[in-house]
Simulated scan of single mutants.
Amino acid sequence: MNAVLSLSDTNDFVAWRQARQDAVERALERWVPANAPAGLGDAMQYAVLDGGKRLRPLLVLATSEAVGGHAAAAMRAACAVELIHAYSLVHDDMPCMDNDVLRRGKPTVHVRFGQAQALLAGDALQALAFELLVPGDGSMSDAMSARLCRLLALAAGADGMAGGQAVDLASVGVALDQPSLEAMHRRKTGALLQASVTMGAATGSASPQTLALLAEYGACVGLAFQVVDDILDVTADSATLGKTAGKDAAADKPTFVSLMGLAQAQAYADRVLAQAHDTLRRSGLDHADTLHALADWVGRRAS
């Protein structure tokens, strides 16, 4: 990682990040039900609360703030994205997919609650995500609800996260070239991160050109996140990561490190993040410092 002081090191950003993470946590505690029947609520809360960087919600909130968006709608969108992310982790960790036992520093949901309850918890979290985007109290317009639902559905579905996971499972033991590897991860990881940005933008008003540049920024952050994730899988330990280290190599999955080598993968992550910063500068937004800092945070994270 770059040794120079970045925006992600500044006191202002750290304070902003902590305040928004705390607000997201309180909202999730309020909206994820503890009283769902037959212990389902316990599994849902276990999957979501008290863990994770909340990067996706932070991207929603930072983008909404940058475009002068609707604060209440942005918080609902931020939590909806996090619920989709959480459900995907619950399902991805199950024996039928990645068969992992550690997530966010604790046993995975299927290890703690059993496979059937984990499957149902993921299903319920997915449904709750869209419920949050269509509140019945008139706090969001029908048009905004519809737009946010569509953006999230596209990112989570066959041409987004679910499709990318299907490609990932089909690629075990396959030597993918760089365009194919990028295409897989732009769906599996990148689509939801990009949607976090575009959903934040959808809570406010911005020109079509600015929206397109924000979408490009989100795509760059999503790709960089995955490259750094591949790097950390071979350089960090399980305690630091909060999940099983070395899992990709053990499963013979194609990664940016296996394709490029460690040094070249890091250089590639740096180039993609530089592109994210350049895209933001071209957007003309007056309040993009937090988005710049989030990009730096993605590139410099240790877990």
Rank of each mutant, 00 (worst) to 15 (best):
L176D: 01
G204R: 13
T210L: 01
K247Q: 09
S64Y: 09
R187N: 03
L55C: 03
C96V: 05
R282S: 13
E216S: 06
M140P: 06
V227M: 02
F256Q: 02
Q45Y: 06
G51F: 05
H277A: 10
H287L: 03
A116Y: 12
A288F: 09
A36W: 10
L192I: 00
G122K: 10
G222N: 00
G204L: 11
L211K: 08
V257M: 04
H85Q: 15
W297Q: 14
L241M: 07
R104P: 05
L49K: 06
V4D: 12
R300F: 05
A129H: 02
L193K: 05
A302I: 10
Y46N: 10
R147N: 14
V109Y: 01
S139Y: 10
Q165G: 02
S207D: 14
P135A: 07
G218H: 07
G200R: 01
A267Q: 14
A265H: 04
L125S: 09
A80E: 05
P95Y: 06
A249T: 14
A202I: 06
D98A: 02
E82K: 05
G163I: 00
C79S: 04
D237K: 09
A156N: 01
D230K: 01
D98C: 09
D98G: 05
R30M: 08
M140L: 14
A212E: 15
V298Y: 07
G200F: 06
T240C: 12
A153W: 00
G160H: 01
D22C: 09
L128C: 10
G41L: 12
A162M: 01
C79H: 06
A201P: 06
E65S: 13
Y217P: 02
M97P: 10
V228Y: 06
A3E: 10
T10N: 00
W297A: 15
A146M: 14
D296C: 11
M44G: 04
M97K: 13
D252I: 07
